[in-house]
Computed example of a mutant assay.
Amino acid sequence: MTSSIPAVATRTAEDATLQAVFLDLDGTLVDTEGFWWEAEAEVFAELGHILDDTHRGVVVGGPMTRSAGYLIRATGAEIGLAELSGLLNARFAARIAGGVPLMPGAHRLLAELSAHAVPTALVSASHRTIIDRMLHSLGAANFRLTLAGDELARTKPHPDPYLTAAARLGVDPARCAVVEDTMTGVTAGEAAGCRVVAVPSVLPIPPAEGRTVVRSLEEVDLPFLRSLITESRGGVY
């Protein structure tokens, strides 16, 4: 995939170390993929359609417009994309009003990155209103930057979200680590030229060159993330 967002110029070997960490939200830091599916199932039931699990594998990790558009086509529901997106966001927002559960290892990882002053960005396909609600559980101070799916013309699986985050932080995408839970997000991170850590939530993600697959955020810490960059640069620190 191509993008009109310019990448930051490559830096010297002396700088070849981890410059920033980009974290996905739903299914990566917070255990909410099930909440989204429940919201979608409830809304479509009210529209007279029953969703089965075959649809879940398609909509997980995607931007709202893609997921909602797919479900309209798959069910034949008589509703517009904008109206459905509004209903789904409202239903999901109601579910997370009391806070959201963090994924195992998320709190410890955020605290570690903050303690070491590692520039950290939250890069999500969710809308800004949803992100801001979840930041109450995650701690807004843990992030140098947050980027929502409705703030860009193109979101994941395009590389634009991660290229935008890198440009705004003034870092080289090749020296940034991305942590994602879906193939949609993994594709975006890899297309941006970042080193990607996949922590599969709903669907499995196969290993690939330049991609590390782990079972949980409990396996991810700062030394581990730093090693991804130094290894890709021939061990230069």
Rank of each mutant, 00 (worst) to 15 (best):
A94H: 14
G234T: 09
H107W: 11
G149S: 13
F44L: 06
R128M: 04
L135D: 09
M134H: 05
M103L: 15
G57N: 11
V59T: 15
G80D: 08
E38Q: 15
I5M: 05
L29E: 03
V58K: 10
V220P: 00
V30H: 11
A165W: 06
A106D: 04
S3K: 03
A39Q: 11
L51E: 02
A117Q: 02
T129N: 05
A198T: 06
G193P: 12
S137P: 05
A45F: 10
A41T: 14
L169H: 04
L109Y: 01
L51S: 04
A106V: 00
G80A: 03
E83F: 14
M1R: 08
D26L: 10
T129R: 11
G80H: 14
R95C: 03
V196S: 03
G48M: 05
S201D: 14
G69M: 15
L228M: 06
L47H: 07
M1D: 10
R66T: 13
L228P: 01
G69I: 10
E231V: 12
A77R: 13
E46C: 09
D181T: 08
E46G: 15
L228C: 08
A192M: 08
G57S: 12
T155W: 09
E40N: 12
V118N: 00
A20D: 04
V8N: 09
L225W: 00
F92Q: 03
S3D: 07
S216Y: 00
V21M: 10
F224K: 01
H116N: 05
A174F: 07
V196D: 03
A93V: 05
I96F: 07
Q19A: 14
L225G: 01
D172I: 11
A94I: 09
A111C: 01
